[in-house]
Computed example of a mutant assay.
Amino acid sequence: MTGRYLSRRGFIAAATKTAAATAAGLAGTLLPAAATAGPARPLVFAHRGASALRPEHTLAAYAKAIADGADFIEPDLVSTKDGVLVARHEAFLAETTDVAKRPEFASRRVRRTIDGDTHEGWFVDDFTLAELKTLRAIERIPVSRPESASYDGMFQVVTFEEVIDFVAAQSATIGRVIGLVPELKHSTYFARAGLPLEERFMATLAAHEYTRRAPVEIQSFEVANLRLLREKLDKRTNLRLMQLVGIGPVKPSDVAAAGGSLTYAEMATPAGLREIARYADVFSPPTRALIPLAKDGRLAAPTSLASDARAAGLRLETWTFRPENRFIAADFRDGGGEHARNEAGSIAEMRRYLELGLDGFFTDDPALGVKAVAG
């Protein structure tokens, strides 16, 4: 499948050419993110925006990511009660909004299990968009990210369409194309709730000139939705499909719901990767599946996964690098404490993984990712 899609330079350059020619609503000329000649460099994906510095999935987080040089920004997508796609990392709202402090919504506190994880609190599909818009974003891990937490209460939850319009305007303003890497979250859960994501998602892509032309990589931890999107969107040369995987014997949610036996561990075998290449363009494992941690917390020897993915004809784009000591391998930590921000260590860790020949990677701090790529 990947053979019919363009290389990174061609992917962005083609999107740039068509966007500049057809997006009459955008001011200025859209230029490629990497206009210089030479080999393709790894893509820097802004994980939930610049989520190390601003509350995740807010326009502020996306603006900071774009200003810091991200090639793509990531809106994770879930559905409101009235069927609107909004940018949240999961259906559970308590960790990233101020809903727990809103007495008008106290009666909506429930206990629910989604994709095997049980939470007690408030869930996006119990709220209309109008209700969700009254909430304000907060930082998920304020002890580690006090700068981001200082923005608590300032920003709204945003819709997918608002994200697209914002990125299109930013692209026109700064003169380079910014890609989108949306993730369809909990597809099986939302389908069972009568709020299927896929048709509304495809309709939104088709309705916006920017997403008809600019680079878009669509991610999921599930399998059936990517297979559907491959069938429906196969002729769209500005799109790639990304299969996310976890580590070990865990099953994708759609596989588990259907009583299947396929696990992420099996998907990461050479045979599993060849099967992924039948419907997806990108294989995206967690970083520690590529270079695991030893017992002392330092990086061990790389696994064969990087070479296996390339042998299957797949791009390799890993998740997620974070700039605090608690998330960094012991090789690169400094003496600042587990919650301390460690820019040099994060850059060094990313560079170690880049030696594997990554095509792209997710980072909570795109500015550091850009420095890592620059060498």
Rank of each mutant, 00 (worst) to 15 (best):
P286S: 11
E222N: 10
K235V: 05
Y210G: 08
S187R: 01
V223K: 00
A265I: 09
R227D: 06
L314H: 02
L241C: 06
P182K: 11
A191P: 00
V250Q: 13
T211P: 08
Q243S: 08
V245R: 03
I276R: 00
F221R: 05
S253N: 15
R278D: 07
R315P: 00
E217C: 09
P286W: 11
I291G: 09
E198C: 04
L293H: 10
L293I: 07
V177N: 05
Q243F: 11
R274G: 05
K185D: 10
S253A: 15
D296P: 03
Y210K: 09
I178G: 01
A280Y: 00
E217F: 05
T211I: 12
L233G: 06
R310W: 10
R176G: 05
T287M: 12
Y279D: 02
S304H: 08
R288N: 14
P270W: 14
R230K: 13
G313R: 04
L299P: 01
V181G: 01
L180S: 11
Y279Q: 07
P249N: 14
A309Q: 03
L195T: 15
F283V: 04
S187Q: 13
H186A: 12
R212D: 13
G194D: 12
L184Q: 00
E275S: 11
N238Q: 07
T269I: 12
F201T: 02
A301P: 05
T188N: 12
G272P: 12
S220R: 04
G248Y: 01
A277L: 05
Q219V: 07
L197K: 01
S261R: 13
G297C: 09
L290H: 06
L290W: 12
V250I: 15
S304K: 07
L262W: 09
T211G: 10
Y279A: 02
A311R: 06
R315N: 07
G260P: 07
D234Y: 04
E199W: 03
P182E: 09
A206D: 15
P292T: 10
R288K: 13
A268R: 00
M242G: 00
V177D: 07
L229T: 02
R236E: 11
D234Q: 09
D281L: 01
A300K: 05
P182Q: 14
E217T: 11
Y264S: 02
P285L: 05
V245W: 00
P270I: 13
L316T: 02
A306K: 01
M202C: 09
G179Y: 14
A271R: 14
P270M: 08
P292H: 11
A268L: 14
S187N: 11
T188L: 09
I276G: 02
L233S: 04
A268E: 08
L226G: 01
E198S: 10
M202K: 03
R213D: 01
A311T: 08
S220N: 07
P196W: 00
L184G: 01
E222A: 06
L290R: 08
E231F: 03
